[in-house]
Design a protein around this nucleic acid. Sequence first.
DNA 1: CTAGGGTTAG
Length: 405
Amino acid sequence: MFSSIALRQARHLSTATAAAAAASSTSSSTISISKAKSKLKAEHDPDKALEIYSSVSDRYISPLSSRYAQEYAVKRLAKSHRFSDIENFLESHKNSPQITQEPFLSSIIRSYGVAGMFDHALKIYDQMDDLGTPRSAISFNVLLSACVHSKLYDRVAQLFDEMPVKYEFLPDKVSYGILIRSYCEMGSPEMAMERLKEMEEKGVEITTVTFTTILHSFYKKGKSDEADCVWNEMVKRGCGPDVGAYNVKIMNIQGGDPEGVKALIEEMSDAGLKPDTISYNYLMTCYCRNELMDEAQKVYEDLERTGCNPNAATFRTLIFYLCKKGRFETGYKVFKESVRVNKIPDFNTLKYLVEGLVKRSKLKDAKGMSRTVKKKFPPNLVKAWTKLEEELGLTKVEAGDNGVQ
DNA sequence: CTAGGGTTAG
């Protein structure tokens, strides 16, 4: 196990090192960051992802997109368990003159968090003084997020009590928000409520997001009364509810009657809020679960008119339930739309669909779908899909289906 | 350019 990873790392090290070198220099400019973004999304090979990252020309013009590209490359490497390559890649950024800028250094901490390498994140945070980077809550908040990302919830509280004293800065509303999130993740909204009091005392603003975090946690524990209290407190203070808070409320009732979901969506519209894709996904899913497929399809079809775009969850859920009800032809149409907007569902959902098409003798559609899937999936899934094709007999040339028609 | 809440079948 270990040796195979080591081998793979050795084989790829040269590319990673080259990309790392390019990342710390300003040369090799060939493509724009927006183009890199769309290329990265379709690229599953971590080495190629690194190449795309290092070929970006306007990194300094668009730091936000640059951070995105960096994170993306790291995500791909992490998926391949190439942690020493991630280290080479990210550590090389320390040679950049920009390292004295806190946001630049913070993006490295963030990337380590994304890779689940919290020890590395903490190390560079502690090195800031040596690197000449000034500290504020910015880097601290990124560090706390990295901690949450690595699911080290109890360490969040520890860092929260330790770092501001050690490095002399004040935690802000965001720091508190992350702390409260980690209490909620640990199943303790009560502890979170305690910290709200502390925020009050110190005059730190309590945001809608923070309230919503606690709201969700109480619902999750089945404590609806406490959740209602949080909701009322939020309203009383005039900070919300917003669309996100409403969506948490909808989530809590979506297992029931679709009319209840519909009513809440209307309530939010009446309150001057614009329900978003997530709100409508809840409604669509609720219809699906209640076997009201025409209504579910209508929600999907109306999405554009309401100014919302279907997302990956929309496609996945709808295609799954359409298959479940035997509506494979419609499922195929929805699939084609998901391809068009580059949000195709996962392997199992698509397996369900292609099997249904074969069962209904829609071989031409099944084959067309198969070709598309193989173009969009990463190599390991293409392999599994090819096996599925063989099992379904899609590789055979049937009479009357010789490709001429 | 600091963060953060809410979605996804069986």
